[in-house]
């Protein structure tokens, strides 16, 4: 996704927009942490396999193996989540599975072609930590805004502050405000550089 009309570099923000399916569901700290970990593991597995598999396999085969690898990692994450909290698994398994098919993970599955692409791919793997952190923080912020408190236990979210933030609309509003703030900061930084 292009974050504005082409004036702001779209890299990290484009990926954040691609994370929207997870951010929309991340409305509590426990869900945010679960989805953040699931995304990070799938993203890292996909990126690492696309980087490390031999180029002679060809791009389609590397993509297929990387995507399968990411799916296997998501599967193991879901099993671990089920052991940890069966109720959390029942609530979140769909989004954990969907994390494999989010745009950042699918892009990470594509084998980088040139040397500069490979360097960018290594850099983007590091961004995965940031995206996972963002997903968890979004959950905590939305839970706080919606209920007035943050709980680490799934299903223990009570109270009512601004319930809209627990709903998809609240996630979209937060993403919009964050993207607008990011644009202002980038503009200010560029203004001070020139």
């Amino acid at each position: 996704m292009t974050i504005d009309d082409g004036r702001v570099p779209a890299g990290p923000l484009a990926s954040i927009a691609g994370l929207a399916p997870l951010l929309v569901f991340s409305n509590s700290l426990s869900l945010g942490v679960a989805l953040g970990i699931a995304f990070f593991l799938a993203y890292s597995a996909a990126g690492a396999m696309a980087l490390l598999l031999p180029a002679r396999l060809g791009r389609p085969a590397v993509f297929a193996f990387s995507l399968t690898g990411a799916a296997v990692v998501a599967s193991l994450t879901a099993s671990a989540l089920r052991l940890f909290d069966p109720f959390l698994f029942e609530a979140a398994y769909g989004r954990v599975f969907l994390s494999v098919f989010t745009l950042p993970v699918l892009r990470a599955c594509v084998m980088p072609e040139t040397v500069s692409d490979r360097e960018r791919a290594i850099e983007s793997l590091l961004w995965g930590v940031g995206y996972a952190f963002l997903t968890a923080v979004t959950g905590a912020v939305r839970q706080f805004l919606a209920t007035g408190a943050v709980s680490t236990r799934f299903g223990a979210e009570h109270g009512s502050l601004l319930p809209i933030f627990a709903q998809p609309a609240g996630a979209f509003i937060l993403i919009a405000l964050a993207a607008a703030a990011f644009k202002v900061v980038i503009k200010a930084v560029r203004g001070s550089e020139s």
């Binding site: 599967s75 193991l76 099993s79 671990a80 089920r82 052991l83 069966p86």
Partner: peptide, 19 residues
């Protein structure tokens, strides 16, 4: 990959039993 998928299957069945 097939071996890893089989291992994931065992992990899933175990987690399902515990849950």
């Amino acid at each position: 990959m097939a071996l890893i998928v089989a291992a994931s299957g065992f992990a899933s069945a175990y987690a399902s039993g515990q849950a």
